[in-house]
Each structure stands twice: as C-alpha cells, then as structure tokens.
Design a protein around this nucleic acid. Structure first.
Lengths: 193, 193
DNA sequence: ACCTGAACACCGTTCAAGT
DNA sequence: ACCTGAACACCGTTCAAGT
C-alpha cells in the first residue's frame, strides 16, 4: 500500500503544468498546433526548459491538451449506438469527431498521421477513435445502410477531412458538406458511371 | 512599336528566377509549401535578397511555381464538357484539381483561402478554377444528376479536401474516397434521416 | 525533483551598399 | 536594374547549473 503507482507531483510542478496547458490552449486556438513554444512558455510564466521538462515535444503537449476532451468524446461514442439507427449514429459520431478535430488548426492532420504511427503520443487516442468508428460502421453495414466497400480507415479520413474543411469555411457550410460526405457512404443504385 | 509592354529582363535575372523556381519546386515537394526560403535560396545559389527581389512573399513564389501547371489544368477544363456526360465531366475535373492541389503539402489550404482573398497572388487562378467548376456544376444540375443544394463553393471545398486527404493516405485509397465524395453529390431518394 | 536561462543552430524579412 | 549579405528579431532544442 502507501503510495500509488504514479507518484504525486510536487505542488509547484503541478501548477506549472497547468499554466502551460492553459497557455497552450490559448495559443493553439489562436495560431494552430504550430504555435510558438517559446511564446507558450512566456504566456505561462515559466522558462522554456520547464515546458520541455513536462512535454518533450509538440505532440506530447497536444496529447496533454486533448486528454479530457478525448474522454468526453469516447463517452459519447459509447452512448450513440443505443440511441439511433446505425447510419444516424455513425453520422453523429463523424460530426462530433469533426468538431473535435477542428478545435485547433492542424489538429486534423495530427490525428490523421497518428493513427498509423505507434510512436505518436496521440496514437492511443486515435486507436480508440478507430475502434468506435469501426463498431459504428459495422452496425451500419449490417443494417445495409452503408456501401460494403467503405473501410474504417475511409471513415477516419473523411471525418478528418470534414474537420479540415471546418477550418476553412463557415460552420453552416461545413455542416452541409458533412451531410454530403455521409450521403456518399450510402449504397448507390448503380455503381457504374 | 519597339519594346513590348513587359520589358525583357536582364539575362542573369532570368537565370536567377529560373534557378529559384527549380529549387523551390524541389523544396516544396519535399517539405511542403512551408519549406525554408533561405534553404531555397541556398539551393538556387543566390543570396536571400535575390529571392525576395523576385518573389516578395511565399504566395508569390507559389504562384510563380504553379503558372504553367495552372494553364494545363484550365485547358483540360475547357475540353471536359464536350467529352463526357455532365456528372462525369465534373467528377474528372474534381479529380484533376485534387491531384493538382496535392502537388505540395499545404497547397490545398492555400488554394482554399485564396478563393476569397483578392490580395492573394493565387486569387486569379482560384477565380478561374471556380469559373470552370461553376460551369461544370451548372451542366450537371441542368441534367438533374446533382443535388440542387450543392454550390460551387461546396465543390471547391470538396476538391481541396480530396487533395488534403491525398497528402495523408495512399493514392489508391484517395481515389476511392473521391469516388464517394462525388457520389454524395448525387440527388438522394429521401432527404430525411 | 524540478526549474532556470544561456547557448547553439536555424529562420523570415529588410535594406544599405555594391555592380 | 539587379545582386549581395549583414543586421535584426525571432524560434526549437539541449543542458549545465542551480534550488
């Protein structure tokens, strides 16, 4: 017994970590995932070395920033299948991920490349995202409401492309575009030209 | 008579311009549109000030790089309507633009933001792209093979999103994804859930 | 155990001086 | 008319020295 597996951090370290995350959130929101790390350290009131001590690289910082956001997303993913018809559940999931991945400019690309990169600090989250996507897709396929040739990787790409478009067009248009993407998943009448 | 409207440049200036463009093409291909300008100047064997003398900013350099590529694209755009059924022509156009906009990482985003930004050196080309897109879309709509609520701006966004995906997934999957995007443009049987 | 900030290598951009 | 490169302000990343 006694202390748990992860030691409790020193109080000042915890405070610094929180300041860095708060500053990074602001900076990423304003300038995207490529925002200056020195600027973030300055905003947080810590030395640049302190930032690197907590987050050894940019992706680790992004992962720290997205932790809570991701658990909220996965909770939604757990509830969706019960509440809707399969294709609607999948469509809602795609919308939620698209909104999520549009939180910071550049995030969609990060999530895209981290799915296949096990070294990425975001890989865990992407794998879990892929699991939810796969389950919802399988249900929709079983119901015959999606094309048989759509893979989970396809849906992953489409969700993140929707997020990318969200970074570039008004929200209303982005919703419309997502609707059309989802429509493209339905089985067509003639698969020819 | 005598000299034409645009003066012929000094021979060394022309040579430098060409070297810069060749070096930029290599660098953009390898590292995307955010590649180091100093690195490009170095590769081209000119001083950094020479690069700025020819291209006052990154977008101007991109525009110089895309000039020929764009005219080839527009020639295709002119030929397409005569050769295919309207939706096929639109689909082929979207594919050609997607391949074009995936030439350099970051280019799709540049083309996206330059459509509405008249100050951008790429605006001209984007406007012309939009004109072709609009014509092909109008023909497909007249034939009743696309949804009535699809705008030219929507197609512009989808083409560039296809290019963005092309930067992240294998070419074969990218083709498949574009097919599905195009399928989403077709009129659906029920517009409800 | 954690924090600091100097040190290094790099980059974007401008502009006085040259030819 | 064009080219050069120093100058300035900035950034990513590491690491010896501190507490």
């Amino acid at each position: 017994m006694g202390d748990t597996r992860t030691r409790r951090p020193r109080a000042d370290a915890q405070r610094n970590r929180d300041s860095i995350l708060a500053a990074a959130d602001e900076a990423f929101r304003e300038q995207g995932t490529g925002a200056s790390l020195e600027g973030i350290a300055r905003r947080a009131g810590v030395a640049i070395g302190t930032l690197y001590g907590h987050f050894p690289n940019r992706r680790a910082l992004s992962a720290g920033l997205l932790r809570e956001r991701h658990t909220a997303l996965f909770e939604l993913g757990d509830e969706l299948p019960g509440r809707n018809r399969p294709l609607d559940a999948l469509a809602e999931w795609m919308g939620a991920v698209a909104v999520h991945a549009a939180a910071y400019r550049g995030l969609a690309a990060l999530l895209m490349e981290s799915l296949d990169d096990e070294a990425s600090e975001l890989h865990q989250a992407c794998a879990q995202m892929a699991a939810v996507t796969g389950a919802l897709l399988a249900a929709a396929r079983a119901a015959g409401t999606v094309r048989a040739d759509v893979t989970g990787a396809d849906v992953h790409a489409l969700m993140n492309a929707a997020a990318w478009m969200r970074e570039q067009v008004p929200a209303e248009q982005a919703e419309h575009l997502l609707d059309m993407l989802v429509d493209g998943l339905r089985p067509g009448r003639d698969s020819g030209s």
